[in-house]
Amino acid sequence: MLFAHGFGCDQQSWQFITDAFSEDYKIILFDYVGAGKSDLSAFDPEKYSRLEGYAEDVLNICESLDLRNVIFVGHSVSSMIGILAANKNPEYFEKLILIGPSPRYLNDEGYKGGFEQKDLENLFEFMDSNYLGWSGAMAPAIMGNADRPELGQFLTTSFCTTDPDIARSFARTTFFSDNRKDLKNLKIPSLTLQCREDIIAPEQIGEFVKNNTPENTLYLMEASGHCPHISAPEETIKAIKNFLK
């Protein structure tokens, strides 16, 4: 099982559910470039301006570790990254688990992604001033990070050890992507875990994914929010296990 974290998190976000699978499966966790303990110098703005860049890295992992029959578990944006990877090299994959997937976040003609351009601008603005807390954003902006490296240090001890600049780039790539036409090409069976009251991937998006993806199962969870693997690990584990039976 290959677990791919979503935007804003790193591999720690899987800590509540991986134990449930470790007996039956080989568990593979990783951090995307820019997140967690990844090598920040490997970040290439050009490559990672498209989700295909991230999908390439997933395929690299499969190739390097010589993986077969992969059950790919992707949270949020990683659902789409997983679909892109599976479309390109289906031979690696057996099943895909999509937690809170959305092929397009922006509203479009005849499509309700949930976000207007201005909502996202608001988010980016918000992230600029606030990525991981006030002191992380304002203190370096005012005093200049180079002079006071200790001010940036708390970042490395926080939950999301993500570089703010890369996080900004990742957010743009995520929220401006449009992968609706990639859904129909998926040849691997997949499960969509859809939460209630998820403002990032609302229920109608789950419906859209179900209706446009061959061999997709939609499971509507009791859990609310966007991170059921964190807020409702039991239910998430149960749903995945049912699907894998």
């Binding site: 979503g6 935007f7 804003g8 998190c9 720690q12 976000s13 800590q15 949020s76 909502d119 996202l120 608001n122 988010l123 980016f124 603005e125 918000f126 992230m127 606030n130 991981l132 926080s158 939950f159 999301c160 998820d198 403002i199 990032i200 929010g225 966007h226 991170c227 964190i230 807020s231």
Partner: peptide, 20 residues
């Protein structure tokens, strides 16, 4: 919260408080 704040809350605040 504002719209951007809600996204941030869902994607960062809630996971962070649950885990940290």
């Amino acid at each position: 919260l504002s719209r951007g704040g809600r996204i941030h809350y869902e994607m960062i605040f809630r996971p962070m408080i649950t885990i940290n």
